[in-house]
């Protein structure tokens, strides 16, 4: 039917891909770029904490307890055990970022797989998985996180695990709904009609069109995860002392709130800044991806 001829593949116009366009639009969004810069800075701080921190975050001194911000030698004061606040905030970025991102990342992988499978296959499989999902979804996320961590015991691993379980249902739900929409489109039908199997159709035609929205939704959960992790630590269910972590620091400093209110607020400021930065990046990504054809 079609003879094999050789067409020179040079002088060929290739349009920028969707993701290249998204990246260009995102890079023009000043607010989102600023927020991204803050996040990158926080990452660098977390990674290079031992080189940046002026003091040992675990070394206390009864003489320096609750020194105010601006004390010579203690730029951000000292906490209730006389530990250098600046160093603790710097080291705290490590665990706080870890607890914010890791559960969401794991939940992204698991939740998307569940949601895409349910959305694509539909029918009974969809009903079974999504109704099971709804059982978890019915609990308020804070309550579920506390209950799970409480049952699993305190510690970073159990905190991580319970937060992951908290985030799987909402991600699966979003994944299911976008996949259900894409599955009904003619190009998926056309792919089926050309004889492709489900796995190939999902890989080539579904993933590219659903991962974007799921990813954006997941990035918006990072700030929630950070706050929940901080909450768990605050309740004594997450990170255990003397490990520096912002939520835990907020907890241990709460007794000092009448003595050194500004000092006690510092970990909260960090949590607020980081979560708002993640939210702004997520918003920027969402609007960059919203391309009207």
């Amino acid at each position: 039917m079609i003879e094999q001829k050789t067409i020179p593949l040079d002088e060929y116009t290739r349009s920028p891909s969707y993701w290249a366009i998204v990246l260009r639009r995102f890079s023009r969004d000043k607010v989102a770029m600023f927020a991204l810069a803050i996040i990158i800075l926080l990452f660098l701080v977390a990674v290079f904490a031992p080189y940046i921190a002026p003091a040992d975050p675990l070394k206390g001194s009864m003489l320096r307890r609750l020194r105010p911000i601006g004390t010579p030698g203690l730029p951000l004061g000292a906490d209730e055990l006389g530990r250098d606040m600046l160093s603790r905030l710097i080291y705290g970025a490590r665990l706080s970022l870890f607890m914010g991102i890791t559960p969401v990342a794991i939940a992204f992988v698991i939740g998307s797989s569940i949601g895409i499978a349910a959305g694509y296959l539909g029918g009974l499989f969809n009903s079974l998985t999504m109704r099971t999902n709804d059982i978890f979804y019915a609990f308020p996320s804070v309550l579920l996180a506390i209950a799970l961590s409480g049952a699993l015991g305190a510690g970073v691993t159990s905190g991580l695990l319970s937060l992951t379980i908290v985030f799987i249902p909402p991600i699966a739900r979003v994944a299911e709904s976008v996949t259900t929409q894409v599955r009904k489109l003619d190009y998926v039908e056309a792919a089926k009609a050309s004889g492709a199997n489900n796995f190939t159709i999902i890989r080539v035609h579904v993933l590219g069109n659903v991962l974007g929205p799921i990813f954006v939704y997941s990035t918006s959960l990072i700030s929630v995860s950070m706050i929940l992790a901080a909450g768990l630590s605050f309740l004594g269910l997450g990170v255990k002392p003397p490990e520096p972590e912002w939520g835990l620091m907020l907890n241990t400093l709460r007794n000092a709130i009448y003595v050194q209110p500004w000092l006690a607020a510092l970990p909260g400021v960090m949590i607020f800044m980081t979560s708002i930065a993640f939210n702004l990046v997520s918003d920027g990504l969402r609007s960059a991806m919203d391309i009207k054809s």
Binding site: S15, Y187, G208, N209
Partner: peptide, 17 residues
Amino acid sequence: VQMVFQDSYASLNPRLT
């Protein structure tokens, strides 16, 4: 047996060249 659908846009994957 192949098919060509009515909606020319919906029948092409927007992410593929």
